[in-house]
Each structure stands twice: as C-alpha cells, then as structure tokens.
Design a protein around this nucleic acid. Structure first.
Lengths: 281, 281
DNA sequence: GTTCCGCATGAATCGATAG
DNA sequence: ACTATCGATTCATGCGGAA
C-alpha cells in the first residue's frame, strides 16, 4: 500500500502529467499554492483568470484520486483584481470542485501581517489570502492538539527571539494585534487556534520569494498528518511545503515545472534537517 | 433630488415591500447583515440555505435601484456549516449578484478577536466573517482619510496618540536634529488600514445579540459617506447601523420586520447623540 | 554582545502613456 | 478601442552598519 517510490521525491515536470503516474489513495495531505491567475499572456506560466477554472479542474481531479479518502487538500489562493473588481474565478473553482465530488469543509484565513504597500483611490492593501480546505469525506484525519501546543511554543520562541525594539514595534503595529496576542499567550499553555492565522510573509530569502512562509505549511502539516505520512505539493515553487514536511518527519512529494524553481527547491529542501527545531523569525 | 421623507426613519415592515416604495438613486451606502441562513424554519427570519440566493436576489435588485450610482453596498455575511461542509450559498450569491449587474469590488475580512467558544472534532472556532463590497460602477465615493488610524491599535482609544515606540523614537531623534524629528513624527502619525478589520464581537449591554459591533458600520460609514449622506439598512435588527449613522451625523433609513427588534432599534437609536465622541461598550 | 536606526524591498494596483 | 509597459503610491519587515 505504501509506495515508497514517491517518498521524498522532487520531480521536474508538468504537474498533470506527473500526477497521472501516481497511485490512487496514497497521499495524506495536499498543500499547495498554485500559480495565480495572470492576465499577461506573455508571461510564462500565466493563466488567464477566465480560463483558470478550466485549467485547474483536471489537476483537482487527479489530486482527488491520489489523496487518501481521509486525507485533506489545502489550497492557498486569492483572486486578483481585474478591472477594479475581484475576479470570481476562485468562487467558481470552489463550486466546480464541489461538483467534482470534493467537500468544501472550511475556509481558513491567512492574515498577512506585512502585506505589500500601495495606495489606490478605490481599495486598501490586500492583507489576507484564502486557505481552502477540501476533503473527500466528512470524516478525515485531524490532530488538533498538534497545533495547540506549538502555538504557545511558537509565541514563546518568537517572544524570546524578538529584540525589545521589535516587541515594542509589534505592540504598536496597526491592526496587527500581534503584540497583544503574545501577551495573551503568556501563562496560557494550551489554547486551540481559530480559523484565522496570523503570519508574516516570508522575507528571508532574498533571491526568490516563496509563495508563503514555512509556518503556513508547517501548521497544516501538523494539523492533518502524523509522522511518515505523505505530503504532496503539485506546485512546489521554491520548495517550502516539502521543506516543512521534511522538517516535521513527514514524507513528501513535490512537482515543479520550471527548472529554475526546481533547482532552488532541491537546494532548499536539502538544507533542512528532519525534526530540526524551528528557527522561526 | 433629496427626498427628506426617508431621512432618519425606522420602518416596521417587510424589507422588499418597503424598498419598493423608496425612490431611485437616493441612498449613499447600504450596510446590512441579513438573517443568516438557517434550516430551522421555526426560527425568526430563517431561510433555508438552499433557498437563500433566490430569497435575497429580489432584495438585491431593489438595493441596486435605490443606491446612488457612486454609492456602495456592504454585505456582512458568513456561510453556515451544513453536513460538515461550508454551504456554498454565499459564493452563489456573489456570482448571481454579478449577473444582476453588481460589481464585486472587494471582500473585507472582519476578524472577530473574541469569537464564540466551542470545540468540534473536525474544525476550529470560526473567527471571521465576510464584508462583501458591491458597487454599481467602478468609480464610487471613498473617503480613505476618514479611517486612517494612529499607529497604535486602531480599534482602541484614539486619545492615546503616542505609542511607546513613537515616544522613544522621538526622544532619540532629538539628539540628531529637530527638523527630522517633526517630519518623522508626522509621517508616522497615521497609516491607512488594510482590508482586514480587527474588532471584538459585541458582548455588551444589549438583550438581543447584535449582528455586529457598532465599530463595524462606523468604519464603513466613515469610509463611504460624508455628513448628511443617507445610510440604509434593510435588515435593521437591533439598530446598530442606524445608531452608527446617527452618531456620525449621517441620515439613515432602517427597515425591520419583527416588532420586537423594531422597538429595540427605536430605543437604541434614540439613545444616540449625533457626533457623540466615541466610547461605546 | 546589544541595541538602535537607516534602508531596500515585497504573490499589488491604478492611471497615464505609448504602440 | 484595446493591449502593454511604466511610474507613483505605501508600510511592515529583516538585514547590516553604527553607536
């Protein structure tokens, strides 16, 4: 049942083609952030918003097939603004995936504490993204305690690492609520999180920006898998998901189309030691 | 053009029926939180999730008619969990309203800092709701400066303009020169918010649970209207929207079907003094 | 070694300009 | 009319140099 040939492999190639070669019911968690829709046709890999659903559905079908019945699919995505309006492709995708047989179990909010700046006459800065949870069944594996304790540890670690300046800074941040959260966590060992995640965007890697900070896949991997479970990211990018999985002692499979990103991912994943206690920040 | 007969009126009656008697292009902002979908028919205002879109669309059509072309419609809503799955009626509603001619300009997130407690095997506590922004045109009135916030927590008191950080920075800059100090101070005084709002849920003195805290309509009323503009809430509930509008010196119209809520709303709105400087539980 | 400050930069968006 | 490109706007963060 356990096909070890897909353990800890990073594959260079087209996601749909590669997925078709993977066995049924073999993945415990799919966690990915697909290329965002892009109206610029000239851009390599850009998918037009109007064609986004049609492009993604066959991939979603494959993911459904390779996912174990009690596994989970987390899709990090956010719709772009097109002609001063939020494009509806994400909404349409959710509805289409439901027709495909997926259950839309939950929508987590990733609140980006440091979002890109900018000012426009008709909108504010976009500070959040969707983390859509899809399942094949109503009953699925979920290890809530795994994210209960680390949340406290995370805060404490974070608190230790922060300089006084940064602590003070955080307290005064606009709407971040970060400083307050730390205050709330002090002396409170156990707290269940909510469906809103406060995480900064990754700024550490200079050359290539990761889609999301490693804390994001780390959280979902802890929540939905146990050790030696298999985590799949069909749009690996710079390898953040695989790195998180490896670090947590999970098996991983990653697929990436672009050689540049693929090589970067290999590098980044190799650098990770399993069970390495996190250096967050 | 300005029909004063709808200024500062609270109407007891069916929302659709009342809306049909209102003049075209007369409302600057619609802000409401409609009755949530509920499968329990006996509940007041309960609408079955599967019928929610069909129920709401005629109302949305009337709102589109009475709204000024450069006005805004803010819809506070969140989908219920039905059979372990998020029901898609909100997504379907957005798509249907777009077909009706609405522009889905933006989706704000109301992050509820103290959400209802509880624990379930397959999900965490729900700590956020959608505030969907719809417009008739790409260009609409927006007064961003009105919601600019001090560098401290914007949901808290405005009296404390000096955050610790700023005080400290200010002091340290004295050594290096005066001119710089003022420039930095002014620049750091206020910042634009993002599309994520951190507000506590209302838990204060009211018998009936208000749909949202008064800070929520207050924020959107400041953002999308000027003084003497007309704010409409077709599902007034306990009157929070009208109270916020009155307090800010805007005109308001509220419609409520249920006599109990209507009377409560009248009471709550009467208690408010226009331009009363904040400090509401 | 610490703390503090300056500065570059980032999954952005709009409007204007040019082809 | 439609598309492509560019400049302006804005602020939380981390890094590096300085005190």
């Amino acid at each position: 049942m356990l096909d070890s040939s897909w353990s800890d492999r990073l594959v260079l190639g087209d996601c749909l083609t590669v997925l078709e070669t993977m066995p049924d019911n073999s993945v415990d968690l799919v966690m990915t952030s697909p290329p965002y829709a892009d109206s610029r046709k000239s851009t390599y890999g850009g998918v037009h918003p109007d064609q986004y659903v049609a492009w993604f559905l066959p991939i979603a079908a494959q993911l459904q097939r390779v996912l174990k019945p009690d596994g989970t699919f987390i899709l990090n995505i956010k719709e772009k603004v097109v002609e001063s309006e939020r494009h509806p492709y994400v909404l349409e995708l959710i509805l289409a995936m439901r027709k495909q047989g997926w259950l839309w179990t939950e929508e987590y909010i990733w609140h980006k504490r440091n979002c890109t700046p900018g000012k426009w006459p008709n909108r504010f800065r976009d500070a959040w993204e969707r983390c859509l949870q899809f399942n094949r069944q109503k009953k699925f594996k979920m290890y809530q305690e795994a994210v209960m304790v680390p949340m406290g540890d995370w805060a404490k670690t974070r608190l230790k690492n922060l300089s006084e300046t940064d602590q003070r800074r955080d307290t005064s941040k606009v709407g971040s609520g970060f400083g307050k959260k730390i205050a709330n966590w002090v002396g409170r060992d156990k707290a269940y999180p909510t469906n809103v995640l406060h995480l900064a965007t990754e700024c550490s890697n200079k050359n290539h920006s990761a889609a999301y900070p490693i804390e994001l896949p780390t959280w979902f991997i802890k929540l939905f898998t146990e050790e030696n479970d298999l985590v799949l990211d069909p749009f690996l990018g710079s390898g953040t998901t695989a790195a998180a999985a490896k670090q947590l002692g999970r098996r991983y499979t990653g697929i990436e189309l672009h050689p540049t990103y693929y090589n970067l991912a290999v590098e980044n994943v190799e650098r990770v030691t399993p069970h390495q206690l996190t250096l967050l920040g």
